[in-house]
Amino acid sequence: MVSFIEALLRHTLKFPLTVTTELSILLPLLFVGGYKDKPPYLRWVVIFIGWTTFRNLTSIVTSSYRINNLMLFNADLLVRALLLLAMFYHTFPYTYEKKAIVVVGVLFTLFFGFDFVWSNPNLSDWQNHRLNRYSYVVENVLMLTLVLRFFLYLVRELPVDNLLEYPMFWICCGLLIAHAGSVFLSPFIHYTFVWNGTFKLPVMVIIEQCVEITRNIGLAIALSHARRLTL
């Protein structure tokens, strides 16, 4: 037990911003609850937050013990993309958009599988496991496209009177900033991120982590507004 706490502390002191970023997902968790009669997309947001919390806490623990967790990050890519697609599925009003999201979800899953095997020809070699080559870029572009499409819907059809009290607006703000901040970084992580590898770009890492904190703050604001929301 003592060694576990020691390992956590050592890791926290060594990477304080990384740990802070990962723990920032606890912020929206404070506002989770009471969504029985709320729009269905909020359930997917809550599942997304739950999954991200699990991933972040697992990441902190495994990193503290220097256990290879790149597989977890690869799995996270697919899970979060599908959860966010499910959220957008329930947000967009038109059937053709919903159908398109289902098709995109299936295609993305197939592409992810292909990319996963291509990036890691020897799946049993955990020490040299790599993050997926193209899936991160595709996910970023996909999310940016969906957020922009949703913003277009907001300004064209004015479905809400006060945008600042609309949860989906804050979720999309967080997602837009998070994915805009990492879209150019994604192509590089495949080449730089192998287990025990280092990535010499501290400013980029800081930006990456700041945008993730921003996304989590966006989620927290969204959930705080969601409590007052009516269907």
């Binding site: 703000c173 590089f188 730089t192 930006i207």
Partner: peptide, 25 residues
């Protein structure tokens, strides 16, 4: 590994654009 400086500039530009889009919307 050292990614090019243009990456940083592009990321900052992208972030500024994202913030602008949010404000505009």
């Amino acid at each position: 590994e050292t990614p090019p400086d243009s990456l940083l500039i592009a990321t900052i530009a992208m972030l500024i654009m994202a913030i602008f889009i949010v404000i505009f919307v």
